[in-house]
Simulated scan of single mutants.
Amino acid sequence: MEYAKDFLDILSALRTYIVDSIGVLFTLFGGAIEFLKSHDGFGNFLTGLIGAAIGGFFTLKGAEKAHILEQENARADEDKLLDNTLAMLKVEINSAWEIYWIEYGKDLVELDDTEPLLSTFPIGEDPFTIFNSAPEALAMAPREIAKDIVYFYMRAKGLVAMVKENSSDTEECRRYAFDSMMQKRHDPAFLELTNDAFAKKLEEHYVACIDEMSARLLMVSTATGMKILTQELKEVVERLNNSIDKYLIDRARA
């Protein structure tokens, strides 16, 4: 019972302390108000408060406008990057296609379906420099344009691999035929021929060796595959030229 009485006394004293403290705070606040009124400070205080509020509002609006402007500038930079990238990709695609068509593709599509293409075509290690360096910008391109660009380069890389294989096979055919022809030069049956007949016989032997080795290497199948890819790419190049030109013209007018 003694402990309970002490506890109640402590609670009573704590309550009295809190009530007195609140009273003191109200007294101090009231005194501050009276002081500001008596010294014209209250009006100045309110004026400063309103001014600060207005200043803060316009500062916030200015920051918001600056943020919007920054976003617009960023979008403009992205649009410019995309426009330049598409223009450069168009140049790379058309340059590569023109060289390929003039030096290789035209002869290929005119070739009889039963004949191999005995031709070499030098290709560098990285013929698609711009495409390989433009994945970020390409991601911002319209879906159909991006789809055709990726399709073109995927098929073009496959065609490059086939052209390199065909060039290697062509060199192997020529090397095999030449070595065989050199051996035939010492054949007694050849040596008995006249000069004209000897030369004709060697040429026939050379061609026969070419045909033999190209058949072993399935070069007719390689040529057929290259023809199919060439036709596909020709259509994609025409489609890309039209779609990229239209996109860039529309962007310039916007």
Rank of each mutant, 00 (worst) to 15 (best):
F121H: 04
N73G: 11
N73H: 14
G158H: 05
V150S: 06
T59E: 04
G48P: 02
A96F: 08
M162E: 13
N132C: 04
S133W: 08
K147P: 00
E115S: 09
K106G: 06
F178I: 10
V160S: 03
N84H: 15
E110Y: 12
D113V: 13
A137W: 00
F178G: 08
Y104T: 01
I102A: 13
L117S: 01
R143F: 10
P142V: 02
E144C: 09
E92N: 02
R174S: 13
K157L: 11
V91G: 09
E125D: 13
L193Q: 00
F178N: 10
L159N: 02
L108F: 02
T170A: 07
A63E: 00
D107W: 11
P142W: 02
W101C: 09
T59V: 08
V91E: 13
G105K: 01
R75A: 12
W97F: 02
E103V: 09
E136L: 13
N73I: 12
T47C: 09
I102K: 15
G48A: 11
F128D: 07
L69E: 10
L89T: 03
E72N: 06
E70D: 10
P122R: 12
V109N: 03
E98T: 15
E171M: 10
V91F: 14
Y151F: 06
I130D: 05
L69P: 05
D83A: 15
L46D: 07
K106D: 13
E103W: 05
L60Q: 06
G158D: 06
Y176T: 08
K184V: 07
R75Q: 12
D187N: 08
E192A: 12
T59D: 03
E110G: 11
L191R: 11
E171G: 11
K164D: 03
A53M: 12
E144N: 14
N166K: 03
D179K: 15
G51D: 07
G105C: 04
D107A: 08
Y176P: 02
S95Q: 15
G62K: 14
A161Q: 06
D79S: 15
A74E: 13
M181R: 06
F131P: 05
V91L: 15
L117H: 02
E165K: 11
E103D: 15
H67C: 05
G105P: 00
S168V: 12
D148K: 14
T114K: 15
L118K: 06
L111D: 02
L86H: 01
K61F: 07
E144P: 08
P127E: 03
E171Y: 14
A52I: 06
A134Y: 00
T47F: 13
E171V: 10
T114G: 10
V160Y: 04
T85V: 04
L60W: 01
L108C: 04
K184M: 14
G51F: 05
I68Q: 06
D148R: 10
L159T: 00
H186L: 11
A52E: 06
F152M: 04
L117T: 01
D126Y: 11
L82A: 02
L81Q: 07
A156W: 04
L138A: 00
H186W: 12
Q71K: 15
A53Q: 05
D169T: 05
K80L: 10
N84E: 15
K147R: 08
E72Q: 12
L118N: 07
S168L: 12
Y100I: 04
R175I: 08
R174H: 10
G51K: 09
V160F: 04
A146S: 09
E98C: 09
G56Q: 05
M182A: 09
S95A: 14
H186I: 10
F178V: 11
E78V: 11
E144G: 10
P142C: 05
